[in-house]
């Protein structure tokens, strides 16, 4: 089971052998949760979103092409799940002006509610990450934490590897500026 490739497993899932999703879950639910947590900065939401990703894998298993890398496919799905969540969140925020006000003015105060803040040092880092735009944060997360090469990032974001590299560089510089300004 260990040696079976992601693609072969997913092809089996596609052919209604749903049990083959278990090894894929074991391989990917950690990294996906990690990715989504760094994007949303919220454990509970990320757990829900990770679950949603696997639900969508099952639901849309028919759309998987065995020739495409499973990793790219599943991250694309995770990106979409996050984008949907982000849009819903924007609507909620637009409806609740007070919350939006708090978000804009007192970014650091939000730290008190976050479960995942371990110490001040990391708090600051996450605050800084939070202040990046979503695309910047995403590219940093993919590059630094998910071990994606520029080629893969380019494919995922729909740009060239070189453009992905420039974007990663700019994102890191932006983070540096925010981090050292605090």
């Amino acid at each position: 089971m260990e040696t079976t490739s992601d693609e072969a497993l997913m092809a089996a899932v596609r052919a209604d052998d749903l049990d083959q999703l278990v090894p894929l879950f074991e391989r990917y639910h950690g990294p996906l949760f990690n990715y989504l947590t760094r994007l949303t900065n919220d454990r509970e939401t990320s757990e829900d979103l990770t679950q949603t990703v696997f639900e969508r894998i099952l639901k849309y298993r028919g759309s998987y092409q065995p020739t495409q890398p499973f990793k790219a496919w599943v991250y694309q799905m995770a990106r979409n799940v996050h984008a949907d969540y982000w849009q819903r969140q924007q609507k909620v925020r637009a409806a609740d002006v007070d919350v939006a006000e708090v978000e804009r003015t007192g970014g650091l105060r939000g730290a008190a509610f976050s479960q995942m803040r371990v110490n001040n040092h990391h708090d600051d880092l996450h605050e800084a990450l939070d202040m990046l735009t979503v695309p910047q944060r995403e590219i940093l997360v993919l590059n630094r934490f998910q071990g994606f090469g520029y080629e893969e990032i380019g494919k995922l974001l729909g740009c060239t590897a070189e453009a992905a590299r420039v974007k990663a560089h700019r994102a890191l510089q932006a983070l540096r500026k925010i981090y050292f300004a605090n």
């Binding site: 950690g30 990690n34 757990e47 990770t50 990391h122």
Partner: peptide, 18 residues
């Protein structure tokens, strides 16, 4: 910044995920 990012704890999914 890079190392701070690297030292950030890797969030682990909760026990209820499985």
């Amino acid at each position: 910044v890079w190392h701070t990012l690297g030292q950030a704890p890797v969030p682990e999914p909760g026990p209820q995920a499985r």
